[in-house]
Simulated scan of single mutants.
Amino acid sequence: MIPQGAQISAEDQEEAAVLPSLTYVFQASGQRIGRLQLDGKDAVKQAVYKALSTRRYEHLIYSSDYGMEWSWEGMAGRSMVESELERWIREALLPDDRISDVTEFDFVHEADGVRVSFTVETDFGSFREETEVNMNV
C-alpha cells in the first residue's frame, strides 16, 4: 500500500537558521588570542589569514583539507608558478562554506618568492587579501 495525502504545509516547514561565524580575535603581531569576538566579514578575513598561514598536513590538529599545500619541485616558469599558486590558494579557502569564490589574482615576482593578491567573495561581501610565498622553503 502506498501512503497518500501526506503533504508538508508551509507553516510546518522551519527556516534554516543562519548561524553566526563567531571567533576569537587572533593578533598575529603579538601571538595572542583576544577575548573580543569577531563575526561576519572580519571573522572570514581572519580565517583566510589562518588557512594561508598553516601548511597543509603539517599539524595533526587540523583536518586534511585545512591549510595551504605547496611544493616548488618541478616548477619551471612564471606561468606554472602562478597557475599552481592560484590552485593552492583556492583549495585552501574554498572548503570554508562562508567563501563562495576566490578571483582576480595578481602576482608580483620577487627574488625569493611571489607576492599574490586576490579577491575573496563571501556571504558577507568581497575583500582583497594578499599573501607572500617564499620559494626557498
Rank of each mutant, 00 (worst) to 15 (best):
S83H: 02
V108G: 04
L60G: 12
I33G: 02
R56S: 11
E86C: 09
V102T: 01
G40Y: 00
R98F: 04
K50F: 13
M75V: 09
E15D: 14
M75P: 02
A16R: 15
T119Y: 01
D101G: 09
A16G: 06
L22I: 13
E69I: 05
S117I: 08
D65L: 04
K41I: 13
D101I: 05
V44N: 07
W88D: 06
T119W: 00
R32K: 14
Q27H: 15
T23Y: 01
T54Y: 08
M80P: 01
S100R: 15
T103M: 04
S53T: 14
R115K: 14
Q31M: 14
Y62L: 09
K50C: 15
K50R: 10
A17T: 15
A92N: 03
A92I: 03
S21T: 13
D39L: 08
G77H: 03
R115D: 07
R35M: 09
T54N: 08
G67V: 07
D101F: 06
Y66T: 04
S64V: 11
V102K: 03
D12K: 15
D65W: 03
R87F: 02
Q46N: 07
R55E: 14
V18N: 13
D112W: 02
E15Y: 09
E11Q: 10
G5F: 01
R35Q: 10
Q37I: 14
A43K: 02
V102D: 01
H109N: 07
G113M: 05
I89W: 01
E69P: 03
R78N: 11
P3K: 07
